[in-house]
Computed example of a mutant assay.
Amino acid sequence: MPRSRVVVALVAATLALAACTGPAAPTPSPTHAAPTPAAVAVTSGPATITAQPLDRTAVATVTPDDDGSVRLSVSEGETVLTAPAGTTFRALEDGSALVEGAAGAFVAGISTDAPGIRLEQDGPTSVRLTGTAPTGVWVASVAVQGAVWGQAEGGRSLAVTPSAWARAWSQAASVGLWSQLVAQDPDADSPTMRAQLECHQLGAPEKATWNLEPWRPDVSAVDMIAARCNPE
């Protein structure tokens, strides 16, 4: 075959191949996933809890209160809270949680800020914050701000000043109240004093002080409430 015809045939074949394959697809540019948000420290008193949001778009905000408690708000997704070294986490039935030291000593408590938000056990030293975003918790290391003995009708009376966190009822706050009260004053350790304390927490959270009397009888919860926390 003459040389000119060979060249024409090669050109025709090249054009036909280009028509079949079309233009080369552009090379996709690399995508970069947003980094996981940095962990934040949530400190109340001696307890510093680490909060790690799991959602890449989450924003965590820590707001200290005047009484030493701290609010944590997370904009999206779940968050894992890790207890300080030497302590453990214990999630409770109502969705609140406790940070506990040796022999179960109360170190701090955490309450959630809405019924649909919960703290669930994630391991011995961690809990997982779940619920509809935004989620938030209230962390406190102080449940009892003061306890002073005095005299009242009938005998001795202990005036207990609870913290704002303890006034907003949760199982964690109930545990923290009793634990700190008997640690500060072992004379308060009796079934009737505990029942009166729990009654005030549920029924009289707004009172400036909760007055507990060791001479009052130990009665059922129904009778305690009926007596307005002051059974005769």
Rank of each mutant, 00 (worst) to 15 (best):
S190P: 07
T88A: 08
T63N: 11
P186A: 08
G154E: 08
T112N: 05
S163C: 08
A152I: 03
D223Q: 12
L54W: 11
G101D: 02
E78H: 06
T61R: 09
V148R: 15
V80E: 15
G150S: 12
V107W: 01
S174R: 05
A41Y: 07
T27Q: 15
T132L: 10
A51V: 03
C199A: 10
P84L: 10
L181D: 02
T125F: 08
P124E: 12
A227V: 06
A13W: 06
A221T: 13
A152H: 07
A226T: 11
V59L: 04
E198W: 02
T88P: 05
E93C: 03
D218T: 04
S96N: 05
P37W: 02
R71T: 03
S170N: 02
A226Y: 07
P214K: 04
T43D: 03
Q151T: 08
A159D: 12
P205K: 05
D187P: 02
C199Y: 01
G146R: 13
N211I: 08
G116N: 11
R156H: 09
V62M: 09
C229Q: 07
I49H: 09
P28F: 10
V144Q: 13
D189P: 08
T48I: 04
A164Y: 03
V175Q: 06
A164S: 11
S170Q: 02
V148S: 14
A114Y: 03
A183Y: 05
L92N: 00
L17A: 10
V148D: 15
D218A: 10
P23F: 08
R90M: 09
E93S: 11
T61C: 03
T36F: 10
T50V: 06
A168R: 15
P162Y: 07
S163D: 01
V127N: 07
V182C: 06
A60P: 01
W215H: 15
S163Y: 01
E153I: 05
G109W: 00
P162M: 11
E206D: 14
G45R: 00
L177T: 01
W178M: 10
Q196W: 03
D66P: 00
V6A: 14
G131D: 01
I225W: 08
I117P: 02
G154P: 07
D65N: 00
A173C: 03
N230I: 06
E153Y: 09
L197S: 11
R3F: 13
S190D: 06
V148A: 13
V127I: 07
L17H: 08
A173N: 04
P26G: 04
P53K: 01
S69M: 08
E100G: 06
P64V: 03
R118M: 11
L10M: 10
E78I: 04
G45Q: 01
I117Q: 13
R118T: 13
S4Q: 12
N211P: 05
T27D: 15
C229F: 04
D67A: 00
A188N: 07
D223E: 12
Q184R: 15
